[in-house]
Design a binder for these strands. Structure first.
Length: 212
DNA sequence: CGGAAGATCCACT
DNA sequence: GTGGATCTTCCGA
């Protein structure tokens, strides 16, 4: 990967200062780059979910809940929000919007561009991975890139974890539907805030059908 | 201070 | 398709 490859240029600061819904759709095709032990692991983002903050019941910041954990969500857009779920798995989000708003984009799935062997080792898989096994799910994605809560609040414009321009996807190739695992969220559970690259094999289940 | 719930994943049936 | 693993966070008492 050449240093002049435009796909590895970081995004403008202002990129993240937009509504989560907008950033979630635009992050598809972008690269998530992890530098670790002298290696560079690269995932192409293929699935995201937007969380809208105080007005979104599925958001950790629902109702303006501001705690030690969620404090990161209220930062200015452009940093990581990493939390632990089910006592086991880490989930990586990109914080969006101006400081004081709690928008975020959950990175749900990625496709290996570089360093797939390292990712497989991080995943500690018994069987050889099929499509979607490497980073097809928010917990898997974090495990593949060795992302943990230590990266919470990390600025994504600098190593060892950054988002770069990647290969942007046209809106015609974006599909959307309801978010996963938030049945408790009332009306918000039906909001079509999950985005994926149309026809991509590395997206996590269940499959999306709605076009957007 | 206790308890319940959770933006999940894996192995096995 | 099911159940088990595993623990932080938050709220109510």
């Amino acid at each position: 990967m050449s240093a002049t490859d435009p796909r590895f240029k970081t995004l403008e600061e202002s990129y993240y200062l937009r509504p989560a819904e907008e950033v979630a759709a635009d992050l598809l095709g972008r690269f998530l780059v992890r530098r670790i032990r002298g290696r560079e692991l690269v995932l192409r983002i293929v699935e995201t979910e937007a969380y809208l903050g105080a007005r979104d019941r599925a958001s950790h910041a629902w109702g303006g809940r501001r705690t030690r954990r969620t404090e990161t969500l209220f930062r200015r857009g452009g940093c990581a929000y990493v939390y632990l779920i089910y006592g086991i798995h880490n989930c990586l989000n990109v914080v969006t919007g101006i400081a004081g708003e709690a928008g975020a984009v959950l990175l749900r799935a990625g496709e290996a561009v570089q360093g797939a062997e390292s990712m497989q080792r991080h995943r500690k898989l018994v069987r050889t991975p099929g499509s979607g096994d490497l980073a097809g799910g928010p917990g898997k994605l974090c495990q593949a890139l060795a992302v943990t809560r230590k990266h919470d609040a990390h600025l994504l414009s600098r190593p060892p974890l950054l988002v770069t321009r990647g290969e942007p996807v046209s809106t015609a190739d974006v599909v959307r539907g309801p978010r996963v695992g938030i049945g408790y969220a009332g009306a918000a559970a039906g909001w079509p805030l999950r985005f994926a690259i149309r026809g991509n094999a590395h997206v996590s289940r269940p499959r999306l059908k709605t076009a957007g």
